[in-house]
Amino acid sequence: MTQIRPLFKREFLGYFRSPVAYVFLISFLVISVSLAFSRYGNFFKSGTASLETYFLFFPWLFMFIVPAVGMRLWSEEKRAGTVELLFTLPITTLEAVLGKFLAGWAFLTLGILLSFPMALTVAYLGDPDWGVMAATYFGAILMAGAYLGVCALTSALTKNQVISFVLSLAACAVLVFLGLSSFTTTLESILPVGLADVVSNFSFVTHFDAFTKGIVDPKDVIFFLSLIGFTLFLNVVALER
């Protein structure tokens, strides 16, 4: 497992060796902040010293932005042929999967944490509940990991980055839409309520909502962590196939 470190380092710094990192971080922050200030976010109108309106859009934003980070993880290696180099080095598939995933996750975490001026703004304007804010950040980071797990998996399935992006987007979209009330109502009309409940339980939105209200429910934490674990397991299987 000590082999994860060099892999993590290469992958993480790799984002910064190309314009990818800067383009990503800047677009992410610009889009997320403008959404909060837009008429859909009502950052000021809401009149509360919280980042709820900022994080409101995260499940939607992640749907597009995490595939942009995750699509290259394996597709690029496969296309460039470096996957042959990587897997003839003394590392196991699991170590490679973990090293890459953790690097991508760390990068996303960096992006999320770089929204700290928003927190400072709120603190300047009012007296926010720091506990709620910490829970929200924690939830956002966990959710980013779950999105990334899905994207890393789809990236391992193809050497084409565009296909990888579209597949990730579709998979993430399903995981978001499952939790929308309009969608669950439709679902309840066809499926038994119990089953519809189970299905909507797989949504990112359902599990993220609690965090934005300051509730860190172990159920939600376990949901995201187990989704990460499951997708990484499939990732290993897909690569060893």
Binding site: R10, S18, G81, T82, L85, T88, P90
Partner: peptide, 20 residues
Amino acid sequence: VGVKRQLGYLPESAPAYPEM
């Protein structure tokens, strides 16, 4: 992994990470 430790391998067309 034990085999890979003992081997030096030059794959065809020498792939490497271009941005490094």
